[in-house]
Nucleic acid binder design. Sequence first.
RNA 1: GCCGGAGUGGCGGAAUAGGUAGACGCCCGGGACUUAAAAUCCCGUGAGAUUAAUUUCUCGUACCGGUUCGAUUCCGGUCUCCGGCACCA
Length: 803
Amino acid sequence: MNRYDFKAIDKKWQDKWEEVEAFKALTDYSLPKYYTLIEFPYPSGQSLHVGHPRPYTAMDIVSRKKRMQGYNVLFPMGWDAFGLPTENYAIKKKIHPSVATKNNVETYKSQLKSFGLSLDWSREVNTCDPDYYKWTQWIFIQLFKYGLAYKKEMSVNWCTSCKCVLANEEVIDGECERCGSEVVQRYKSQWMLKITAYAQKLLDGLENLDFIERVKTQTINWIGRSEGAECDFSIKDSDKKLRIFTTRPDTLWGATYMVIAPEHPIINELKGNIINFDEIDSYRDAAAKKSDFERSELVKDKTGVEIKGVKAVNPVNNEEIPIFISDYVLISYGTGAIMAVPGHDTRDYEFAKKFDLPIIEVVKGGDISKEAFTDTETGIMVNSGFLNGLEVADAKKKITQFLEDNNLGVGTIKYKLRDWVFARQRYWGEPVPIIICPDCGFVAIDESELPLVLPNVESYELTDTGESPLSRITDWVNVKCPKCGGDAKRETDTMPGWAGSSWYFLRYCDSNNPDYLATKEALDYWMPVDWYNGGMEHTTLHLLYSRFWALFLHDIGVVSCPEPYLKRTSHGMILGEDGKKISKSRPEFIVNPDDMINEYGADSFRLCEMFIGDFEKSTPWSTNGMKGCKRFLDKVCGLTEIAKGKGATSELENKFHKTIKKVTSDIDEMKFNTAIAAMMTLLNDIYDHGSLTVDELRTFVTILCPFAPHISEEIWSMYGGTKLLSLTEWPAYDESKTIDAMVNIAVQVNGKLRGVIEIPVDSAQDFALNAAKSDEKVKVFIEDKSIVKEIYVPNKLVNIVVK
RNA sequence: GCCGGAGUGGCGGAAUAGGUAGACGCCCGGGACUUAAAAUCCCGUGAGAUUAAUUUCUCGUACCGGUUCGAUUCCGGUCUCCGGCACCA
């Protein structure tokens, strides 16, 4: 066999694996287990492009190797099917979202199967399946019962023309994506999940997890824990107080003005005292049109209005200071009000310069005539009453104690993390299983009534009241209150797409169980997930949301392990061949995997996906790269023509041991590209050598199997493999055979390479130096010079410093 | 703007507890085979000088500076690109 005849081979082995259920995770819970997880796809209107298979193939390689190493592997797949894009697609194409989803799932599934992934399809889940979302709703009810789901007034994007709520994504430059009309902020009561109650746990849990560093740091920054103090400023000629949060209570003496968010309720409370209320009100209107993001983006040009007729009083020195409203202060963080210390905060400094407000130095160490001094490590307090002379850290403790002792404030911890808005005014999502009773308030439906099935309606288009399309189905909406039996209504908002994906890894443990989310036994065995790979873009939302749910389900006794994922890695994106992100707006750069597989075969495609670059970095797609991978596989097939002799090993033995070692460790470290390069190098060495033994060929296809399983199975079967190669043992290597007797080391003179010498491995320093100095090329550079220093790094280099 | 990453030949990338920069592959050029082409095989391939030579030298890992015998790797600063910014999932 001198060619990879993929048309004959690929389907043959895919059918074989399916026939014998080769990749079915076993329910024998005495076996050592390994749970590999990839983010399940969102089956949108577009078919898969060449970017999707990269993480799938990577984790398939990991799963296949673990299986060969004797683990009972769970490598499942499913569909994250609810959500806005499918609904919009359905409205546009005039197909029901459930039909659109069904079609897309079919397409995706056949594509995934053509890649030869070793998935256990018997555990497939679909978040829009009532048997699945029954448990999504059940979890919501538990969150509600434990006080972690509550309703709150929230601002939403409102299109003035479409008369509907828009997702942030649908707002482009303050205009509606569909009609281009103005978008304003409106208030609506929304279901929220109290993820902030888990902020500290989400932070603490990270510590012992094997998450890649950038995921950890981004999560930590997103949660944004900061220690500080809340402190009351009284309002002159009023009994009202303005409570602020600051991380720098030590700088209280430097507060020269205050700033409150435009939405702050105290504005209306003080209406009678405010002289320029009209001006304030129009600023509020303008701010209402901007999102938080737009507000902080315009940070360079700070805007604001002084609230005239009202002064605040600094509690530590009784100074009267002005109050401004400005949109750089967000109502959603802290208390929605700050004391401004322009000498020691960059944003306050800019604002003070613009509005010509006094800047007082209270921490020595910088030059506040030029910029704010924000260092908290080195400063000494000045102009600060009893704090003078203290270091910042000590001053913080002392002032916090002072505030508490005098009932002026309290030391506190705040998080940037905000609660999770858990409602959408949309059709295509899980109905929220709550009944709103005029007498009893919010009442969860009885768990025996789950799933609360999403009504199958003709019209799921948006309403012009801003309510969910479900609100139109009166016979579904109108119900009796489960508590008092009186007339009541169902909640008509649905859950966001994040809901189903927040616990799917639990369902995989026991996907088909009608009575439980999953049995305790299955959860105890499979959880936690051993290795979860996914996109960086999911770090701050999905990853955090799902950890929150898992921690909660642990707290109420559903799962035994607190943290759901032991290890988290992240792949880089595949870009278009033009080096830019693949996007439906540039269809000429979308490459369909089907075309690649038809032309080069599944194994070439898998190999190319993994060889194209560092798995963790994004990289442009290259159809040319497919050719190189196909050539490699053709040459692997060609080995069958030069394989001779049984049992005996050849001079290639050490090279085999080295390659096994490298491929084994590279897979564990996600360095798939160098693992493939190592196998290519070995292949070149075999051809240079001219032949290999049959056993060596069997070893070669065994380590190639996770990467190119079809061709490996085929060759394996040619050489008497009775059971599937995919279920055969991963080869061991002999460490002593991975080390060469001789080693080439570099010889530098004054740090410049002047020669290379071959010496025995682990040579002594004297030996190496003598060998280096007697090298003809090196001699020229050290003759007639005095040697100042000699450096020897064993097995690496010699550096001779001369004068 | 804020948070997190990245920048190495014509291209994708390799090599970092600081130690021979460019593994492996693509493209390209030359040759073999062929009536011819494709496929395949062999050779070459960072840039610039230099040599009879496949010789020798210099430069070179986004940019500027620093530490070091030695920096792609560490430190300080700058630029550019990518991901996220909470109702896309």
